[in-house]
């Protein structure tokens, strides 16, 4: 990449590395202070730049990544307790609280709803596909 795209591209590279570190390691215990020092930022500077780049704090982003991963596992039918620890949360109550805050329903309710949807998709897939697409492609014949 050309270095003159932005005069502070070197800062962006370090912020993106920190974001990708969270993407790769969300399931582990992540200390955000460690990420900021690895990226050679003071904690305050790191928080400010991360928020500027992604519109949320590193901690908020980490929680979102963990909830997103939890949704994928719950959709597969994994047990709530297993999912909680698999995506890096310390306790089921805090996982449940954060999940509900983001999704509006508990992990258990989400899991049950997903199972029901999966069964419906298997039985009647064309209920989930706009008919204009199904018909024009001849899929529903």
């Amino acid at each position: 990449m050309k270095e003159d795209i932005h005069p502070k591209m070197y800062l962006y590279k370090r912020i993106v590395e920190a974001k990708l570190f969270i993407d790769r390691n969300y399931a582990q215990k992540i200390e955000l202070e460690n990420i900021s020092s690895e990226a050679s930022f003071s904690k305050y500077h790191f928080l400010r730049l991360f928020k500027q780049a992604y519109g949320k704090s590193p901690h908020q982003y980490l929680t979102e990544v963990r909830i997103s991963a939890a949704k994928r596992l719950l959709e597969k039918g994994d047990a709530v307790g297993d999912v909680c620890y698999a995506v890096g949360f310390d306790s089921i109550p805090s996982f449940t609280r954060l999940f509900k805050k983001q999704m509006g329903i508990s992990p258990k309710q989400f899991s049950l709803a997903q199972q029901k949807t999966a069964e419906q998709k298997a039985k009647q897939p064309f209920q989930f596909i706009p008919n204009c697409f199904a018909e024009s492609n001849g899929w529903n014949k």
Partner: peptide, 13 residues
Amino acid sequence: CEDIYATYQEFKG
């Protein structure tokens, strides 16, 4: 996107 330079850097990578 929120910040194009960060997004550009990530996607290029």
